[in-house]
Design a protein around this nucleic acid. Structure first.
Lengths: 136, 136
DNA sequence: CTGTATCCTCTAAGATACTG
DNA sequence: CAGTATCTTAGAGGATACAG
């Protein structure tokens, strides 16, 4: 029966997916591709900000997403959290050196995007135009 | 009533999310953060490959995901598709010049990741250890 | 061989409400 | 002010079957 081959294939896929998770580049990609991480990092590029200031600077972020984004950045050692035990509590966030170095990579992506997204947009329009024409 | 303020806030969020979609850097991030795009681009770095060859080189990809990834890359002008009308059909994929230039950016991310993911992993372990300790 | 169509699952992200 | 807890939803990704 073909079950054996099928089984092998599925195991190979599982292994591969596992390897993928180990790949440093993929881990990085997953870390920064979350919708808000780059925005938070950019916001913190010039210095530390409070939780409420971040919300003001990034109007689109719900406080839930902001918090969870900050937590994951903190966990990865990219952002540090400074709590001042007063009433009311004050917490500031700032980029760590590691965070700043990642910021460099983010800027490079930004540069490529700004230099080339016109070409991409154009390609998309061309592609969509052709696809639309074929269905007419 | 507070509805007016609430309404304004929600509109602000909608506008912001809209702006986000316009941002070139974010478009790029969304384009390459899909699970398979970088793998496909890396696979095509050395030259053109057939659909079936790509499946072999990237064992984890279902043919559905491979096809849809290739379609989106093609739409963005990063990959070109060469169909040879024979029996059976033969189709090859290769990176466009634009695709190659993006590959450069991907390599930079890869370099950062390989240089710094140890620090990130370490930060994660430290963070998790502390968090675990607090729940004990 | 190369692809399309369908169905299904799982999770990221958002809305809302509540606590120290 | 800062943060947590719960519910809901939209979409990405996967399994499978079929078609040119």
């Amino acid at each position: 029966m073909t079950l054996t081959a099928e089984r092998k294939r599925q195991e190979a896929q599982a292994d591969f997916n596992n390897d993928l998770g180990q790949c440093p580049a993929r881990q990085l990609l997953e870390a920064i591709s979350s919708k808000w991480v780059t925005l938070v990092m950019l916001a913190l590029a010039d210095g530390q900000l409070r939780h409420s200031e971040l919300r003001r600077v990034i109007p689109g972020a719900s406080q839930k997403m902001l918090t969870s984004t900050l937590r994951s950045l903190e966990r990865d050692g990219l952002v540090s959290r400074l709590v001042t035990a007063s009433v009311p509590v004050r917490t500031d966030y700032e980029l760590t050196p590691l965070g700043h170095s990642l910021l460099g990579v983010v800027y490079r992506m930004k540069d490529w995007a700004e230099a080339n997204m016109d070409d991409v947009s154009h390609a998309r329009m061309e592609h969509d135009r052709r696809h639309l024409a074929s269905t007419r």
